[in-house]
């Protein structure tokens, strides 16, 4: 198990480094190393390559890793507590809420990127809080009520977002909303990295600590209680942590689907269902996946392909393959 995780980490480092010198604007690996050593030795004289690496590529790759790792860990945890491998972190409505927040910000405060971050993050958290509160009203069957509330709240915010698209200015606002909703890492900056890392890393740490108990929650409420785990309390913690991660990810990169659902399923085939290993491994594989996909997104054509589109196009066949490979003769 640990060997596979170690291998994953090595691949992540290699892929991340490669991503620094590949792209529409190619840089020699040698120059990347030079840029690093210049920074370390504090040699001044910024070359253009250095700027590309430090101001554009490194923040971008760091964001890829944060978002990829975070969404995969969140997805794996949700699949555990909802006892269903088709669950994604969006199931409680966080992406719909954050998407609405971003659309609202683009409509009302088009110049301010700070406000967009704050509003989309807040409404993302708010939508999950609403789902949770609605579900609490139902005394029995906590998991089913959560899912139902999440679907309802998600649809509600999707509808509001559509409304905003309807009244938005079709020359500038509507395209920016549409583009944002498809997910993208353009405009990655170290500021965004620092901002996003607070909720994302906090959420990841909490889920790492809880990963053994997520195994037990996946057995069902009664059995979990009989093994000494309070299901409601732990579910709340997992939901809070996953929501922090997903809101943090959506606020900086828009809605990137499939990772939270697909990566855990692929990793489960490789490393097994024990969340002690599955959660870290999913994180690493998710990070590798997103670094690679973003590399394709920004290199394939002149204009960037929104990454949400690529994860969906690549995700669907990958999922079909994972799901059916056992039975392919």
């Amino acid at each position: 198990m640990n060997k596979k995780i170690a291998l994953g980490i090595i691949i992540l480092i290699l892929v991340s480094f490669a991503s620094l010198f590949l792209g529409r604007y190619s840089i020699e690996p040698r120059e990347v190393i030079e840029a690093f050593s210049n920074k370390i030795h504090n040699v001044s004289g910024e070359s253009f390559n250095s700027a590309v690496i430090w101001d554009i590529r490194i923040p971008r790759v760091l964001l890829n890793i944060l978002v990829g790792f975070g969404l995969s860990v969140a997805g794996t945890s949700f699949q555990g507590i909802f006892k269903n491998n088709l669950v994604s972190p969006d199931i409680l409505g966080v992406s719909s809420g954050a998407g609405f927040g971003a659309a609202l910000a683009l409509l009302l405060f088009p110049g301010s990127s700070k406000l967009l971050l704050i509003i989309s993050f807040s409404i993302g958290i708010l939508s999950v809080a609403i789902s949770y509160l609605i579900a609490k009203i139902k005394v029995e069957d906590s998991v089913l009520s959560l899912v139902l509330s999440g679907v309802i709240v998600g649809s509600f915010f999707n509808a509001l977002t559509s409304f905003i698209k309807l009244i938005a200015d079709t020359e500038s606002t509507l395209p920016s909303i549409t583009y944002w909703l498809m997910g993208s890492f353009t405009g990655a900056s170290m500021d965004k990295v620092f901002l996003a890392s607070v909720p994302i890393i906090s959420g990841i740490v909490i889920l790492f600590i809880l990963r053994w108990r997520i195994n037990i929650l996946s057995l069902g409420d009664e059995e979990a209680k009989s093994l000494g785990v309070n299901p409601k309390r732990h579910r709340v913690l997992v939901i809070m942590a996953s929501t922090l991660i997903t809101s943090g990810a959506v606020m900086v990169s828009g809605i990137i689907g499939w990772i939270g659902m697909l990566i855990p399923n692929i990793c489960r085939e490789i490393i097994g269902a024990d969340n002690r290993y599955l959660i870290p491994f999913s994180g690493i594989v998710g990070a590798v996946f997103l670094v690679l996909v973003d590399l394709i997104a920004r290199s394939l054509t002149g204009t960037e392909i929104p990454i949400g589109i690529l994860t969906a196009i690549l995700g669907a066949p990958m999922f079909i393959y994972t799901y059916t490979r056992r039975d392919i003769k």
Binding site: R211, L227, R268, G272
Partner: peptide
């Protein structure tokens, strides 16, 4: 439909004896 290994499932019986934020 639990995909866990026998060893992992038996290990879960130890949970009441494992402190709240620890691993086995």
């Amino acid at each position: 439909n639990l995909p866990y290994r026998v060893n992992d499932l038996v290990l879960m019986g130890r949970t009441k004896l494992i402190p709240p934020f620890s691993m086995p």
